[in-house]
Design a protein around this nucleic acid. Sequence first.
DNA 1: CTTTTAAATATTACCGATAAAAATAAGGAT
DNA 2: ATCCTTATTTTTATCGGTAATATTTAAAAG
Lengths: 252, 252
Amino acid sequence: MGMNLLAQADMIATAGSNGVSVSKHESMTQRAYRIIRADIISGARPPGERLRIEMLKTIYDIGPTPLREALQKLSTEGLVLALEKRGFMVSPLDLDEFSDLNIARIEIEKVALTRSIALGDSQWESRVVAATYLMNKEDAALLASGNGVSDVWEAANAEFHATMIAACGSKWLLQMRDHLQDMCERYRRSSISQSIRKTGDGKRDVGKEHAAISNAVLARDAGLACQLTESHYMKTLDRLKRDLKMVTKPKP
Amino acid sequence: MGMNLLAQADMIATAGSNGVSVSKHESMTQRAYRIIRADIISGARPPGERLRIEMLKTIYDIGPTPLREALQKLSTEGLVLALEKRGFMVSPLDLDEFSDLNIARIEIEKVALTRSIALGDSQWESRVVAATYLMNKEDAALLASGNGVSDVWEAANAEFHATMIAACGSKWLLQMRDHLQDMCERYRRSSISQSIRKTGDGKRDVGKEHAAISNAVLARDAGLACQLTESHYMKTLDRLKRDLKMVTKPKP
DNA sequence: CTTTTAAATATTACCGATAAAAATAAGGAT
DNA sequence: ATCCTTATTTTTATCGGTAATATTTAAAAG
């Protein structure tokens, strides 16, 4: 009847890392969406690149219909631009939009953080402690071997910040933050600041910043936690902004 | 060659009221997306309704491919649920999600309002004055003829609140607010509280609330403006929540 | 009454036809 | 002679039809 339909809908809605469910028998549309999305964010499909169906068909071995559906979805998200009667292209990078994106991301993060600190229970606190522990460890490892950030560090960092706001009480707030973060990530990855990741970030001690944020959160000092988080993000942002000037198209 | 492509892309991106561009030669996908979206928000397609392609094909006189593309887009937005190998359905209403949605909407609105008050210039101020003038007029007309809210009042109301946050300096923040508002609108319209719209809202003087908000905004008192806006939304929200208990599916 | 089997129904994805836009080539004007 | 305009060609996107696959409904047997 209509009831088990909804029950199974919940199962499907049980999503993976980025709101993308990973079923065994994934539909072609889902598959195309997931892969192309990852390729755009990672920079494998560079900004401004035209996404011709024939071309994608041979690359991903997926038919034209699921490809179009995936691209339409991505255009709703803003990662792809749908040009009337002229197909699709990867959304170009734009320095102004990057500022815009970061403003929105940081503001929403602060709101979520404030709410999380106000609403979080003991179980959430323990999650914070656990994430902080792992983050500390990875930060120390990062500092020791000057090889720059690793994938495990990236994962710990993502988990750290996600945990801080996890108790904000609004899935939509979290979803919007995730979306904005993905959009920002594309700018970060597309920038030539990969070199920065290798060389490290100058005199900056990210570990101390993380520890300070964690302390403020556990002390339930929302104002301080927001302030620290904002400047934490701003530091990397300023660096990126400088580097991005070269890879974004100049304004007309 | 490649350049005017981007230039024209900007033209297409020049959107109408709800981020939906209305071109003369609208593609079938766009058409389907626009119409079905409006039908879902308005309640013409009720929550939980299965959206069978064959059915939609005859109703909207649009082929299956553009219909599927439109439904995929709507599923990205959250208005439609895509069930693996089981087609699409209008996302069911859920009281918890409604709370969630409103939390996010009000929080983002407050952030945008604070920023708008901090950043708005004289031109924005004049827009605020203009919108307030129209709103006042419509509020008075509403109070005089006890016929309940009209479409022109709704338009004035939307414009009023949009103007207050217009100077927030982040298109993404505004876009997310718009999206959340559309999602909330579906709950409002689907509720039986149409009766409330007809009977009026009790002893509540919406005109005074609007005036107070406008004054706080023009006085650049962000704290007060946020507080007033929040309670303004909360008042209608509480009413709605009561009524929605009947139309949303009970939790298992 | 539950479980299994079979028919019908719907969704998914590929293919081909149509139509639109970009590229190229030709002609005329300054 | 060069540049702009116009016409033709080629490429490419869009859309509806259709076959294959999975699922749901219904019926029958245990």
